[in-house]
Simulated scan of single mutants.
Amino acid sequence: MRQQKNTYTVQEATKKLEHYCAYQERCHKEVRQKLQGMHMIPEAIDVIIVHLLEHNYLNEERFAKTFVSGKFRIKKWGRRRLTQELKLKDISKVNINRALAEITETDYNEVFNTLAEKKADSITETNIMKKRKKLIDFLLYRGWEPHLVYEKANELVH
């Protein structure tokens, strides 16, 4: 049995995407992919994206700031990981820098220190070198700067 492919008029797709963007901040790439998934033609996609931008449903700077704030607070990602993830979403360098500027140096260091200490305490490895490596790998994966990571690992694991 052949599955019926949903088709949308520009108005229907616009309404659907307004809800999609109102529910959660989105970047241009996500919106474009969603529209392509709805089998919209490129011209219609451009018309809808312009509409979303004009009516402030879509705002890349706002998306970047929300993304950074959420991933930093909840997942405790460092600047390198945040930058990398935003680049994957085709966010401009200007918006990435504006979003990262929202994190104060004090908050950044506080989150880093708390995360590192908590992780160091939770590693049960008895071999000092292996324990240090596990801590370093954990922090680097989360996107914290290498100089901070190595300094902290040497301070906590000895």
Rank of each mutant, 00 (worst) to 15 (best):
K76L: 05
W77Q: 11
G78W: 00
G78T: 10
R79W: 07
R79I: 12
L82E: 04
L82Y: 09
T83V: 10
E85A: 08
L86F: 10
L88Q: 15
K89H: 12
D90P: 11
D90I: 12
S92N: 09
S92Q: 13
K93V: 15
K93A: 14
K93Q: 14
V94C: 13
N95S: 10
N95T: 09
N95Y: 14
N95V: 08
N95H: 15
I96W: 05
I96M: 06
I96F: 04
I96P: 04
N97C: 12
R98C: 11
R98H: 13
R98E: 14
L100H: 03
L100E: 02
A101K: 14
I103Q: 01
T104D: 09
E105L: 06
T106E: 12
T106P: 00
D107Q: 07
E110C: 06
F112Y: 01
T114R: 08
L115A: 01
E117M: 09
K118D: 09
K118Q: 13
A120I: 00
D121V: 02
I123Y: 03
I123C: 02
E125P: 00
T126W: 09
N127T: 06
N127F: 11
I128M: 08
M129F: 07
K130D: 05
K130P: 02
K131C: 01
R132G: 03
R132S: 06
K133N: 08
K133R: 08
K134D: 04
L135W: 01
I136R: 06
D137M: 01
D137T: 12
L139P: 03
L139D: 00
